[in-house]
Amino acid sequence: MKHGTNPNWFANSPLSRVNIEKDQEAFFNARLADPKSLVIPLWRGDPLMTDGSPAFLSVGALSQFPKDAPVILLGMKDERAYFAVDVSAAESAETAPFADIGDYVQLRIAAGVLTRDDLAIIGQGRWYFEWRRKHRFCGNCGGETRLEAGGAKSRCTRCEEEHFPRINPVAIMLAIHDNACLLGRGHQFPPGFVSALAGFVEAGETPEECARRELFEEAGVVIDDVRYQFSQPWPFTCSLMMGFIAEAEGREINLDMEELAEARWCDKADVIAVLNNETRDFNVPPKFTIARQLLERWVKE
């Protein structure tokens, strides 16, 4: 697949997904037996890497993994199947399978060297395994579930209820006023690091309504003309982040100190200088984040 206009690094996967509405067991098993197929091992969502590249192993390597290690089919490219295998049962990254040929590198760090295609593939694997880790039991009867359709859904072994990945929708918004944008910092981040504000979409709420509510709740800023820009699958919390740019009615800030440690209006010239590494007056998120791409788009407008 060709990349579209979405600039986000976890988007635009080069893989063609497999139709999970049909019985995929025969297809799944055939791909597992195909010597062309590749598999990427993930330890707690972090990929095995060798010499700065992801270690896509021959599918035959699965015989070296524990038999109960979850395996999911990510998709197809050039008639070759791509799988991911979860080796999180190992006590440490150093004791995980095939650690002797490389290192399991934290995905947030690996994102700095991975190609966008590889990041999308690995991010998809991490996303599925995170969902699986949190939904091993049926929400209908409490029974244990088993993966089906190559890992794209699960079924309860007791009541036969089907379960599909639950996506957490998030609105992330860059409020602007004249030639400035609003950036804030959560308590979990170090001083000087600021980003666009974000929040989870609540039940019965549109992403645009969420953007307005979150900006007002966290910073007391009223926004209008909420304009959707692009989205990004975010594998660290099983989220789909939807990015917006919105006009603020004014620059008065009424900070919710429980939600944010600080919020500030940053002039466009200062943001451009930070993006170009010309100054360190403050820090912004790395390029693989949707917050960074919102800033990049705004400064080019």
Rank of each mutant, 00 (worst) to 15 (best):
G4V: 03
N8F: 00
W9Y: 03
A11D: 03
N12D: 04
N12Q: 02
S13P: 06
L15P: 06
S16I: 10
V18C: 09
E21P: 05
D23E: 13
D23L: 00
E25R: 10
E25S: 12
F28Y: 15
A30L: 05
L32M: 11
S37Q: 04
L38M: 10
R44Y: 01
D46Q: 03
P47F: 04
G52W: 02
P54W: 00
P54L: 01
S58D: 09
G60I: 02
A61W: 05
S63N: 08
F65T: 11
D68V: 02
D68A: 04
K77H: 08
E79Q: 07
R80D: 01
Y82H: 15
A96P: 07
Q106I: 04
A110H: 03
A110V: 01
A111G: 01
D118F: 06
L119M: 01
Q124W: 01
Y128V: 05
Y128S: 12
R132L: 05
R133Q: 04
F137Y: 14
N140P: 01
E148A: 11
K153P: 00
S154Y: 03
S154I: 02
S154E: 14
R155A: 15
C159L: 06
C159Q: 07
C159G: 08
F164E: 07
P165H: 11
N168Q: 15
L174W: 14
H177T: 06
G184I: 02
G186N: 04
Q188T: 06
F189T: 08
F189W: 09
A198W: 03
G199V: 06
G199C: 02
G204R: 12
G204S: 13
E205S: 00
T206I: 04
E208S: 12
R212K: 15
E218M: 09
V222N: 08
Y228E: 11
S231N: 11
S231Y: 05
P233Q: 08
P235C: 12
T237F: 13
F244C: 12
A248L: 11
I253W: 14
E259T: 15
E259R: 15
R264M: 12
R264P: 05
W265C: 00
C266M: 13
D267E: 14
D267Y: 06
L275I: 08
N276V: 03
N283H: 12
N283A: 10
V284K: 14
P285K: 15
T289V: 09
T289S: 14
Q293I: 02
W298Y: 15
